[in-house]
Design a protein around this nucleic acid. Structure first.
Lengths: 132, 132
DNA sequence: CTAGGACCTGGAGCGCACTCCAAGTCAAAA
DNA sequence: TTTTGACTTGGAGTGCGCTCCAGGTCCTAG
């Protein structure tokens, strides 16, 4: 049976399946992200060697998904994770990374919007052709 | 040497290299798109068997790039190309395809914008932490 | 006549981000 | 004690969209 506290001794952590449910990424992907160096530090383990995700881990993964959804490559996320995992002192570098990402996202958004506008025109043409 | 009219007899068509320059996609990709069934009809050939792109082909490829840039998968572009290549009578279906694409693009734009807003907050936090 | 360069083809290779597999471990229920 | 099922691992496989390769043809310039 499913036991949310299995091996957890009531410390409020989540199993990988629960973390997957909480973040919306698959368990496969959670392991993949860890292997790819996206977790700052390796996820904690129960005595059974099973992963135990803290609330902080969940928040981190959630932020990772925001970076992914906006198109940041895994390599760059790994770089950001390395910086974040190194502790204080590199905030400027982290800021630069995020700011540059933001710039690219806005650029891309603009490109998509411009292309969508052209598609909209085509749609209007079909619409009119059909209405007649 | 480069000769824009090579084998062209002045019919105003473009070689694959020129078509690539005109549309911004590589010659590799132009051939790939044709193989993938994205060209409605096979591109015309000179007697040398070299491709000759018409102004209409160029416009079509340009539109294809708009679909691609906005995230339409090649499979769906192929479906659209099949409809467009079949001549008149399926305008409603083409319209539905484009309209559905448009809906998904807007959905995706919204998702990206929401996630970018969350990243912006993080940027603001770093900005403030550094300003102090 | 030869060399160069743009083009042709089928098919292989690549980078990315997962996604899955096989064989094994572990804890708890039956 | 056996079974169940969630988990573990390293590594293989997948789908996508190109991108490139090898070997060949054709046309033009020298």
């Amino acid at each position: 049976m499913f036991d949310p506290l299995a091996g957890d001794s009531g410390t409020g952590t989540l199993t990988i399946a629960e973390a997957a449910a909480a973040t919306g990424v698959s368990t496969h992907t959670l392991r993949y992200y860890e292997r790819a160096g996206l977790m700052r530090d390796p996820v904690a383990r129960a005595t059974s060697q099973h992963r135990r995700y803290s609330a902080d881990d969940i928040r981190w993964v959630t932020f990772l998904t925001r970076l992914r959804t906006t198109g940041m490559p895994i390599r760059e996320m790994a770089r950001y994770a390395r910086l974040a995992g190194a502790g204080e002192g590199n905030e400027a570098e982290r800021l630069a990374l995020l700011t540059e990402h933001r710039r690219r996202v806005l650029e891309r958004l603009d490109e998509v919007q411009r292309n969508l506008a052209a598609i909209d025109k085509k749609i209007a043409v079909y619409q009119e052709r059909i209405d007649r």
